[in-house]
Computed example of a mutant assay.
Amino acid sequence: MKKEIPAPVIAVVSQNLPDIETHASLDNLFLYADAPGDPPEGSKPVKVQSWLRIINKECDYPLKVLGKLIETHMELPEQDEQEQILWGHNVTNHKKEFKEKLLSIFKQCNLTYTSGGHLSDGSSAPSKALSELIKGRDIPSIDAEFNRALANVNSEPREAVSAACNILESIFKVYIADEGLSKPQKQDLQNVWKVVRGDLGFDTKLVQDDDLKRVLSGIMSIVDGIGAFRTHASSAHGEGRKVYNLKPRHARLAINSAHTVALFVLETWDERRKK
C-alpha cells in the first residue's frame, strides 16, 4: 500500500509555498519533482493544492515527489535562515517560517526528512533517538547509511535493508578503530560484531538477571538475522533461484531492529567513556 501525502501536509504546503514562489517558479519546481500532468488552473494556493492531490492519485511514491519538491526549502543556505531587517524593523522571513512549519507538520504526521530531498514514514522512536545521537559524531558513513535506509523504506525496500545492515557494520568498525582493538581477519557484520560485543561485555554468561539475559540474547539474534537478511534479500547481493518478495513492512522491521541495536551500542559506549 502506497503512502500518500497526508492532508495536513498538503494544507501547510499549499498555504505557504505560494508566499515564496511565483506561478512560473511553482511550475518549474513541480516539473523538477516529476509531478504528473500540466499545471492546474487557478490561483497559486489552488494550483499547489490541486497538483499535490494529483501526485497522491497518480504517483506510485507520492512522498518521493514531495521530498524533491521541498528540498530547496528544507536545506536553506545559512543566510536565508537569518532574521530579515528592513528600515530598522524585522520582516517576516517566509522561507524560514515555511521550513519551521514543515518540520512541525512532519513531526505531527510521523514523517522524517533527510538531506537530499528524502521524505520517509519509516522513522520510529529508535530511529529518531539514533538520529539525535549520531548528529554530534563526525562519521559520514553512519550518516549516509542512516539517511539511505529511511529514504528507501517505501520505494526500494531491498536498498533499505542493505543500509540497515550497513549502519551496524559502520558503527562496529568505527568502535574497533577508535578503541584500538584488533580487527578480525574477515570484516563482515558477524565478525566485527563479535569483537564489539566482547569488548562491551555483551556476554549472557556475565549477566545474572535472567530477563536481561534474554534481552541480550535477543540482541545477538537480531544482528545475526539482519546480516542474513542482507545476504539473502537485500540489494547488496545478487539473487539465486529464490526471490524474496520484500515489502516496506519487512524493510521497516529491519531498520527499526538495526537502529535499536545501534542505539544500545552507542549509549553503552558513551557510558563507558564517561566512567
Rank of each mutant, 00 (worst) to 15 (best):
M1R: 12
I5P: 05
P6M: 08
A7V: 13
P8Y: 02
V9S: 03
I10S: 05
I10F: 08
V13C: 03
S14E: 04
N16S: 07
H23G: 05
S25Y: 02
S25F: 01
D27Y: 04
N28E: 08
L29E: 11
L29A: 09
Y32D: 14
A35F: 01
P39V: 03
E41M: 03
G42T: 00
S43M: 01
P45H: 05
K47R: 09
V48P: 03
I55R: 06
E58W: 03
D60E: 13
D60N: 13
L63R: 07
L63Q: 04
K64F: 05
L66M: 05
K68V: 09
E78C: 10
Q82N: 11
L86H: 10
H89I: 09
H89T: 03
N90R: 15
V91M: 11
T92M: 13
T92H: 10
N93F: 06
E97T: 10
F98L: 01
E100T: 09
K101D: 06
L102F: 09
S104K: 07
K107N: 11
C109N: 12
C109T: 07
N110E: 14
T114Y: 03
S115G: 15
S115M: 11
G116T: 08
H118A: 10
L119Y: 08
S120I: 02
D121V: 02
G122K: 04
G122N: 01
S123T: 10
S124I: 02
S124P: 04
P126N: 08
K128V: 10
E132N: 12
L133T: 07
K135A: 08
D138G: 00
D138Y: 02
P140G: 08
I142R: 03
I142W: 01
D143H: 15
D143I: 11
E145C: 06
S155C: 08
E156V: 11
E156T: 12
P157E: 09
R158C: 01
A160M: 02
A160T: 07
S162W: 04
A163C: 01
C165D: 10
C165Q: 12
N166M: 12
L168M: 02
I171E: 00
K173D: 06
K173C: 00
I176V: 03
S182K: 13
S182A: 15
K183P: 01
P184F: 07
K194Y: 09
V195E: 09
V195W: 07
R197S: 11
R197A: 09
G198V: 07
L200K: 02
L200S: 02
F202N: 04
Q208W: 07
D209F: 08
D210N: 13
D210I: 14
L212Q: 10
I219E: 03
M220F: 13
S221N: 15
I222N: 05
I222A: 11
G225A: 15
S235T: 13
E239C: 11
R241H: 15
K242Y: 15
Y244R: 12
K247E: 13
R249D: 13
H250Q: 10
A251H: 06
R252K: 12
R252W: 04
L253S: 09
N256P: 05
A262D: 02
A262C: 10
L263W: 00
F264Y: 11
W269M: 03
E271L: 14
